[in-house]
């Protein structure tokens, strides 16, 4: 379903983010992408959601050839990928409920659906009591759960989490990982980008290890091992 074919991303002669990488992710998988800072993890995400274009190679997502999409075609792609970031990226002037509803509203979904789904998903991430709080009134863990709820509300085929636990303490980290596993168990593909060794080792799922823009390991039931 997701496939990177001979992808390179070269910013300039001094900075090669990715060098000729290739992998395929199947529906329903839970894949961790690990590596040091600067190994190219975030570049993979940017290429997948069309935020950047590869210098060489093809990025396939379902029916889309992402590297060929025009800016106006990106919303359609992105509505099928739920994205969770380290810094949450919630809209500051909207409360938790509105942040989640926004993802449905921009798709033109009717009000009745929004009123039905948003409370459900708030309940699922355990934030029903925080529905009308604004981001600055929420803790880091709560913000991240709102972000996950927003990523999930469209029932996307894939949820991409880019260092979702980078700003959280161990307890909230465990909460977030549990939530991602729950999402995966409901059939959604999850791509987790992280450099949290404990998380990866605890998961015991597929691990793609990057170093210096190359894939150095790609194992089922992998561990966090960096040579």
């Amino acid at each position: 379903m997701i496939s990177f074919q001979n992808v390179s991303k070269i910013y300039n002669s001094h900075l090669t983010a990715l060098e000729n990488i290739g992998f395929t992710i199947n529906p329903g998988e839970f894949v961790s992408i690990v590596g040091r800072n600067g190994a190219g993890k975030s570049t993979i995400i940017k290429l997948l959601i069309g935020e950047e274009k590869p210098t060489k190679g093809r990025v396939i997502f379902g029916p889309y050839e992402v590297n060929k999409l025009k800016p106006a075609e990106l919303p359609a792609l992105r509505s099928q990928i739920g994205i969770v970031f380290q810094d949450f990226r919630l809209l500051s002037v909207k409360n938790a409920y509105e942040n989640i509803a926004f993802a449905l509203e921009v798709e033109g979904r009717p009000q009745s659906e929004i009123e039905e789904f948003v409370p459900q998903i708030l309940d699922m991430v355990g934030l029903a009591h925080r529905a009308y709080n604004f981001p600055h009134e929420l803790s880091g863990g709560e913000k991240q759960r709102v972000a996950i709820a927003r990523a999930m509300i469209n029932r996307p085929a894939v949820v991409v989490a880019d260092e979702p636990t980078g700003n959280l303490d161990p307890i909230h980290t465990a909460d977030i990982i549990k939530l991602l596993l729950k999402i995966n168990s409901l059939g959604t593909t999850v791509i987790l980008v992280t450099h949290n060794k404990e998380v990866v080792n605890h998961l015991n799922r597929r691990v793609i290890s990057l170093d210096n823009g190359r894939i150095i390991r790609d194992e089922e039931n992998g561990k966090y091992v960096l040579a």
Binding site: E51, P75, L91, S92, V106
Partner: peptide
């Protein structure tokens, strides 16, 4: 401007 970036990433069409 950060909010504009977030809206783009959530998949909001430009008119929105």
């Amino acid at each position: 401007r950060d909010e504009i970036g977030i809206m783009r990433l959530v998949g909001a069409p430009n008119k929105f």
